[in-house]
Design a protein around this nucleic acid. Structure first.
Lengths: 346, 346
DNA sequence: CTTGGTAACATTAACGTTAATGTCTTGAAT
DNA sequence: ATTCAAGACATTAACGTTAATGTTACCAAG
């Protein structure tokens, strides 16, 4: 009767209670299939609820029960395919378990990361998945102080101090270098731009380990922190004349820039430079470039992150654990041997 | 005193009230800088709040006030850079206005879109930004029934019936075709895979309009719906021998696949085929491929979407409006004239 | 000296849900 | 017949915030 006016009032437990003659509490329990309610009553209430188009008010529920069924996800930003693909994976996992995500962006700035943590807390998320952009402990301390369970994703911090899900970055870099070595490259370089928490360090270590094993002398190893495109171009030219042919780049996104750079100089891949990146974002984003890359098993990391966080939310108080996921190298032909007659196994 | 135990209780207005001697209500008003509170009191309360690390409980606030300061965003998924970049823009706009986003993915499936709408409603979002993946009105009817303000983003539906923010797709396609024509191409094709609501139709129309104006005969126009890579490759080869040289592809992501396809066949861009895509996702995602594209002004669309939605949330009951954003063509050299001596202006 | 107004705060009552108890009926065991 | 237990539902009281009123003290105008 005259209820179809502008506002379109929401259906509440109260409404269902009136329609069925039960109390609000009984309705609440019936809709949750709790014991203490007869089968018949339960079905009748659920039928009426469906008929009236009842949707639980998550705010009220959260306020009372302390559970929002919402997880906060703090990433750098969607413009980075690593984050966007990871977010996609997290979405599916969370959805399948009845959780919604509040996605917040740190833009890789510590202050914004802090702000994102604050927002997540005020939104009463049940837990937080944080992709840290800084080694600072402020965000972590804040989450601890607020009593919000959290899991650090994809970035090494102080290992073992907090729950953490990462892929084996050191091993990934090792595989990358090995891939270049097997293709016959003997003078190799590692390029990076940002020190993303301890990932950069890990990758550099793995790179050097492979070179050690292969007996590559110090004079044939190069590590370069990029400043801008011009400098990188200059460096590449210098390497070209020095005979450096194998490049391992911190991540695929940075590798794209290197490729652009190489192409602009009129050089070619893999003839002039062989290239390996990290993250294998091409697994989901099929852009037309041949780039070898280390696959960090994003679906596995995403799933493990959600699962670990859920167990913490449900009171599992084990000591912090670090879950390390295996990596694998995906070859797309950006590292073909420059001298075809050298057997790849040597 | 012994408050630093496990749970780490949240700080509430009650706590601040006790510490300052004021009532909960006064504290609430002080923290919102409302009138009716003396300057001194206000400052003192805010200081104590900051000291105790108070964070407003958004759930409780939402329950009472009916406002969650949260917007629902329903996109296809982050694996598509169009959505991920758009989401980034929306994030910044929303954040700047004190809103959080709950991002939900339809995976371009109508049932999941419906489910996402349901989730958004149960989360009490103040409004919804929907990137429709279907022409079906079900989602729209559901949002209307729930009384949730919404704005349709980037996809034409029945024009003028709902609030809608889009870029001028027809004009964009027109510019794309014109770009190809100016580069000297006389036999042109339009390729697409999905009919994304009415966008495909719009783009096809604009494409044909440019061809009409240029007097390209029907026998020199081709429209092709892609099925799989093999068929596309076959078609490209056929076109190659027929003299088709200009390709306009529905969107950049599809254009990537075309580029891969062309490269695999040993052909080159722009020598063998000139290419224009749509969305200009390379503006944010600098991957190393020269691809001309139509820029749909994502920042503008995002901002307008949020603004329009906000005005609806705040009770603006104007008739539905469609905001049309201008587009521009971004040239990256994928369409160079195949015969260099033909002036580009002809 | 009263009246009226206002600044500055307090009181009260929700918002919709749910946890913790209460109550009553029924049937079975003693 | 009495006791007990359990099934099925009702009552009550929060969760933390805020809108709508109350209350008080103080000052100026009549």
């Amino acid at each position: 009767m005259a209820k179809d006016t502008a506002g379109a009032k929401r259906v509440t437990l109260q409404d269902i209670a009136q329609h069925t003659g039960y109390t609000v509490n009984t309705v609440s329990r019936a809709l949750k299939n709790k014991s203490d309610i007869s089968r018949a009553t339960c079905e009748r209430i659920q039928a009426v609820a469906a008929e009236l188009g009842y949707v639980r008010n998550v705010m009220a529920s959260a306020l009372r029960s302390g559970r929002t069924k919402t997880l906060g996800v703090i990433v750098g930003g969607m413009a980075n395919p690593f984050y966007s693909i990871m977010t996609d994976e997290l979405q599916d996992e969370a959805m399948a378990r009845g959780y919604s995500l509040v996605i917040l962006c740190s833009r890789d700035q510590p202050e914004l990361e802090m702000q994102a943590v604050e927002t997540a807390i005020s939104r009463q998320v049940d837990g937080i998945l944080l992709f840290p952009c800084t080694a600072s402990q402020r965000s972590i301390e804040r989450m601890k102080a607020a009593g919000v369970p959290f899991v650090l994703m994809s970035r090494y911090l102080e290992r073992g101090r907090e729950d953490c899900v990462v892929c084996d970055e050191e091993q990934g870099a090792y595989l990358a270098a090995q891939h270049l070595l097997r293709a016959g490259h003997r003078k190799l370089a590692y390029l990076y731009t940002y020190d993303v928490v301890f990932s950069g360090e890990q990758r550099q270590r793995g790179f050097l380990r492979a070179l050690d094993e292969a007996g590559i002398p110090a004079c044939d190893r190069f590590i370069y922190k990029q400043q801008n495109e011009q400098d990188t171009a200059r460096q590449l030219l210098a390497w070209k004349s020095e005979g450096v042919t194998g490049l391992f780049v911190f991540c695929d996104m940075e590798a794209w820039l290197i490729i652009s750079c190489i192409q602009k100089m009129g050089l070619r891949i893999p003839e002039d430079f062989a290239l390996v990146g990290f993250d294998n974002i091409q697994s989901k984003l099929h852009f037309p470039t041949l780039l070898c890359s280390v696959d960090g098993c994003m679906p596995g990391v995403a799933r493990a992150g959600i699962d670990l966080l859920r167990s913490r939310i449900h009171g599992d108080a084990q000591p912090p654990q670090t879950l390390l996921f295996p990596v694998k190298l995906v070859c797309r032909g950006a590292c073909e041997s420059k001298e075809k007659h050298i057997p790849a196994t040597r």
